[in-house]
Amino acid sequence: TEELDSELELPAGWEKIEDPVYGIYYVDHINRKTQYENPVLEAKRKKQLE
């Protein structure tokens, strides 16, 4: 659920942004990119696909 997503600790260099226009998204300051999917959940999903 969304509530559990926010409890996950983000990897180093990541920041969660709550924007009133664009909603919640994540900033990867190391690689200078943004995405809507939580990077922790993304990594778990990719691992399940292997």
Rank of each mutant, 00 (worst) to 15 (best):
L49R: 11
N38Y: 05
K47Q: 14
E50K: 07
L8F: 11
Q48K: 13
G13T: 00
E15S: 08
T1L: 10
V27R: 12
I17A: 08
Q48I: 15
H29W: 03
I30G: 08
E9T: 11
E18K: 06
E2R: 11
K33G: 04
E9S: 11
P39I: 00
N38G: 03
E42M: 06
I30A: 11
Q48W: 07
I17C: 07
A43M: 12
D5W: 06
E15I: 01
E9H: 11
E18L: 06
N38F: 12
E18W: 01
D5M: 04
E7T: 14
Y22H: 15
Y26C: 01
N38E: 07
D5G: 14
V27Q: 08
V40R: 11
V27T: 07
A12F: 15
R32P: 02
G23E: 01
E18M: 07
V27P: 04
N31A: 09
K47G: 09
K44C: 13
V21S: 09
K44E: 14
K33L: 13
V40S: 13
E15V: 04
P39S: 02
Q48A: 12
E15D: 02
K46R: 11
K16S: 03
E7D: 12
L8S: 08
K16H: 00
K44V: 06
R45E: 15
Y36H: 11
E15K: 05
P11N: 01
L49Q: 15
L49D: 15
E37H: 06
E9L: 08
K33T: 09
Y25E: 07
Y36K: 12
V21A: 15
E37S: 09
H29I: 05
L49P: 12
S6A: 13
G23F: 00
E50I: 06
E37R: 04
E18D: 10
V40M: 13
R32T: 02
T1V: 11
I17K: 14
A43G: 10
D19C: 13
Y36G: 08
N38H: 15
E37T: 09
E2S: 09
P11F: 03
E2L: 05
L8N: 02
G13Q: 06
Y36P: 09
N31G: 14
Y36S: 11
Y22E: 13
E9G: 13
L8P: 07
K47M: 11
W14Y: 01
W14F: 03
P39H: 00
G13C: 05
Y36E: 09
A12R: 14
R32K: 12
L8G: 10
Y22I: 09
G13D: 02
I17M: 12
D5R: 08
P39A: 05
K47F: 07
Q35L: 04
Y22T: 09
A43E: 13
K46C: 11
D5T: 15
L49K: 13
I30S: 06
K16W: 00
A43T: 14
E15R: 04
R32E: 14
N31I: 00
N31M: 03
L4E: 07
A12W: 11
E37V: 06
K33S: 08
Y26F: 10
Y25H: 09
D19H: 10
A12N: 09
R45F: 07
P39D: 06
N31H: 12
K47N: 06
E50Y: 01
K47P: 10
H29S: 07
P11C: 07
P11T: 08
E42C: 06
N31D: 06
I24P: 12
D19K: 02
E15T: 06
I24L: 08
I24W: 05
I30N: 04
L4N: 05
V21Q: 13
D5P: 14
L41V: 14
Q48S: 13
G13F: 04
D5N: 15
P11E: 05
G23A: 00
Y26I: 00
E9Y: 02
L4Q: 12
R32D: 15
I17R: 13
L8V: 06
L49V: 10
A12P: 11
E7A: 14
L10C: 05
E50Q: 03
H29R: 08
G13W: 04
K16I: 10
V27L: 12
L4R: 15
T1Y: 09
